[in-house]
């Protein structure tokens, strides 16, 4: 370390005007502190925030057969600035029932999947939070472990489970419960299974973080006062874990609305989800302006869930 420091000072003293440059930067408010702040801020401005402005801009332009496949929205013409804003893409989204039903379908599928994930995830999170301390970490790791293996391959595994001559059908035929294979793959059912399966850890983790902090004495007090376990659960445990429930639900719901891989691999041709519509507009139809408009509307749809998530997370942080 000391060797590094040494060479560094040497390098600096060899640089003519290094001090003057430093002073100039300092006067511009870009001292060491400012530079440190600037690195992540500029990176994220350029590669996260500005891209959204570009999407907004292109959603207002007209599609064209060109490279890139849209017309510019402003042009200099003999010292005259021509601005052509084309709201046609948004009108088109309103007129064609395909888009509206894709948005509604996405919200419905994501909502029902979130509910199922909550029903499975809550008992699991509760059990882990109430386990002896030395077992908790192992159980938590078992929840997180599948998340570390490829998402795409985990979705793929369900094809083998759900298809006509897949594992579930073969088993049910073998036991004689059914006489002919059930059609499960390429249905909405398969999409629900895929979403619940893929996002279950996102439900369990915030629920666990909330439930593990829950003061056991409230539950004992409620039981001492003669409440039945069900009443205690409904009137004490459930309200106290509300922010954990909201955080978990939003962490499943938000990505599920825009999901592409799961409906593409497990859903049928009539499973319309907006992420898939955006993908097709972009890759198959090469209509970048419509794809951009679809993305902007999706963002507006997700504003309320995102705000709810932030609020729930703030409550959780305040509580810890």
């Amino acid at each position: 370390m000391s060797m590094f420091a040494h060479t560094e000072t040497n390098a600096r003293s060899r640089l003519p005007g290094g001090k003057a440059l430093g002073g100039l930067l300092q006067r511009l408010g870009l001292g060491g502190r400012g530079l440190v702040i600037a690195i992540p801020t500029l990176w994220l401005l350029l590669f996260f925030l500005i891209p959204f402005l570009v999407v907004a801009k292109i959603s207002l332009s007209e599609a064209a057969i060109a490279r890139p496949p849209y017309l510019p929205i402003w042009e200099w013409d003999d010292g005259l600035l021509n601005i052509n804003l084309n709201f046609g893409n948004y009108l088109f989204l309103l007129e064609d029932p395909l888009y509206l039903s894709a948005y509604l379908e996405s919200i419905k599928i994501a909502g029902i999947s979130t509910l199922i994930a909550l029903l499975i995830g809550y008992p699991m999170a509760y059990l882990i939070a109430r386990s002896p301390e030395n077992q908790r970490n192992i159980l938590l790791m078992l929840v997180v472990l599948p998340f570390w293996t490829s998402f795409l391959l985990r979705v793929y595994a369900w094809i083998g489970f759900l298809k006509a001559n897949g594992i579930i059908n073969n088993f049910l035929l073998w036991t004689g419960i059914i006489d002919e294979p059930l059609i499960m793959l390429q249905t909405d059912f398969a999409v629900y299974v895929g979403i619940v399966y893929s996002y279950l850890p996102f439900m369990i983790l915030p629920l666990y973080a909330n439930l593990v902090k829950l003061d056991q004495s409230y539950i004992e007090a409620s039981a001492d006062l003669g409440a039945r376990p069900v009443t205690t659960f409904l009137t004490v445990t459930l309200p106290l874990s509300a922010s954990g429930i909201i955080a978990g639900c939003m962490l499943v719901f938000i990505p599920a609305v825009g999901e592409f891989v799961i409906p593409a691999l497990l859903g049928g041709p009539d499973t319309l989800m907006i992420g898939r519509v955006l993908w097709d507009e972009f890759f198959s139809n090469r209509d970048w302006p419509i794809a951009s408009a679809v993305a902007i509307v999706m963002l507006f749809v997700l504003v309320i869930p995102i705000m709810m998530l932030r609020k729930a997370q703030a409550v959780e942080e305040g509580a810890s």
Partner: peptide, 20 residues
């Protein structure tokens, strides 16, 4: 900006970066 990518659907991140 550092927390938003966590909840942004992948299709939007992909499209916006490509257009950038």
């Amino acid at each position: 900006m550092i927390t938003a990518p966590l909840v942004m659907p992948e299709v939007i991140i992909g499209l916006s970066l490509l257009l950038l």
